[in-house]
Design a protein around this nucleic acid. Structure first.
Length: 376
DNA sequence: AAATCGGGGCA
DNA sequence: TGCCCAGATTT
């Protein structure tokens, strides 16, 4: 009856092969226990955006423990939401998820909508995440195309050109849609991604273990790694910064970044860009000056180099005249003083969190030395 | 269409 | 070091 019976048969065979393979080769991942909870699927899919499975697992467990339902998330304070995301990166994902939870609570009576258009209207849900929720949680025959699917399908049909180009993106989505079976669409989509993650890898794919290698054009060519034909990467420009631990007594100064841009809305140590030609050792002083801290800056020997950011410690004396007395609320954006244990509860970017851990260790070592000295 | 967001893992 | 990762949003 179909106009392309051979084509349909081939699609059916690919789906069946993948589903059979998946039933014996699916990794045991925490979110696969809650496949029928749209919120749980949603959280896992957002965390997995541009983030590897191993990095997500502990964050997912902690998140679901604190925000087990969409209402728990909708009622939570944004700073606490960000604190639970702290270290995962791409913090707009957390803010969007929080905003979307509030929207679902307000506009959909707390139920994740199963309508594609309504899903796509939520902040942070694009074509991929909508397809994943619809197919995995609701069992609806929608396709997904992520980095894994992109690679698998590019090899399957030996796709010519950059898979990111708009023409090829349309082709890949159409191909993915044509392959999704009406039954078990969620398992099929996960199988496709699982295959890309564990078998059809970017380098050294294990074609011997692939259930659809007999259908794969790249495999037949003998050089599967020729696909996908990625565009040449652009080179990135690095900017040097210094990050300063400004200390007064047992407290340190943190500032909250703007909501948009890098590490949006997170707390960090005062930071200063190193101007071209400037001695990096002068930068801590300019960072302090940008806070209005003019007096009695005594650099301490604690320094740490991390990527392109250098960290210095500065001890402030007479700070009360220039920096207002400790501000208890964490709502302010300006320089605010925290003890190290208070800082540990804030939404910090991962490098800042590591820096504070190192600094605490350094301080303890210093105290140990001074104690030992006093005993002599 | 291109840039941006981030941190970790791995060759 | 460079590339990749269960992408979405802004410009």
């Amino acid at each position: 009856m179909s106009t392309k019976p051979r084509c349909i048969d081939r699609q059916r065979e690919i789906a069946d092969s993948l589903l059979a393979w998946f039933s014996g080769n699916a990794r045991d991942l925490p979110w696969r226990c809650l496949q029928h909870d749209p919120y749980a699927v949603w959280v896992s899919e957002v965390m997995l955006q541009q983030t590897q499975v191993a990095a997500v697992i502990p964050y997912y467990q902690r998140w679901m423990g604190r925000f087990p339902t969409i209402d728990d998330l909708a009622r939570a304070d944004e700073q606490e939401v960000l604190a639970h995301w702290s270290g995962l990166g791409y913090y707009a994902r957390a803010r969007n998820l929080h905003r979307a939870a509030k929207a679902v609570a307000a506009e959909h009576s707390g139920r994740v909508p199963s309508d594609p258009a309504a899903l796509r209207a939520l902040p942070g849900i694009g074509a991929y995440t909508a397809g994943a929720i619809l197919s995995i949680a609701f069992g609806l025959p929608h396709a997904v195309v992520d980095g894994n699917v992109e690679r698998v399908l590019s090899r399957l049909v030996a796709l010519d050109g950059d898979p990111k180009s708009s023409v090829n993106q349309k082709a890949l989505w159409n191909l993915a849609r044509s392959l999704v079976p009406p039954e078990r669409p969620g398992d099929f989509n996960q199988a496709l991604m699982e295959l890309g993650a564990t078998v059809c890898t970017p380098s050294l794919p294990s074609c011997g273990a692939c259930p659809i290698s007999n259908q794969c054009a790249a495999y037949k060519s003998g050089e599967p790694e020729r696909w996908p034909q990625a565009a040449p990467a652009r080179k990135n420009v690095r900017v040097e910064h210094v990050s300063v631990i400004v200390r007064a007594g047992d407290q340190i100064v943190l500032v909250r970044r703007e909501n948009s841009g890098l590490w949006g809305g997170l707390w960090e140590n005062p930071r200063s860009e190193v101007a071209r030609g400037e001695d990096p050792l002068d930068a801590p002083a300019s960072a302090a000056r940008s806070l209005g801290l003019e007096a009695d800056i005594e650099p301490e020997p604690f320094t740490q180099f991390q990527h392109q950011v250098m960290h210095f410690s500065i001890r402030l004396t007479g700070y009360a005249a220039t920096l207002r007395s400790p501000i208890p609320t964490a709502q302010l954006n300006g320089p605010t003083m925290f003890t190290l244990s208070e800082a540990a509860g804030l939404a910090l970017a991962a490098p800042q969190r590591k820096l504070l851990v190192e600094y605490e260790r350094y301080q303890r070592a210093q105290q140990g030395m001074s104690t030992a000295g006093a005993n002599e």
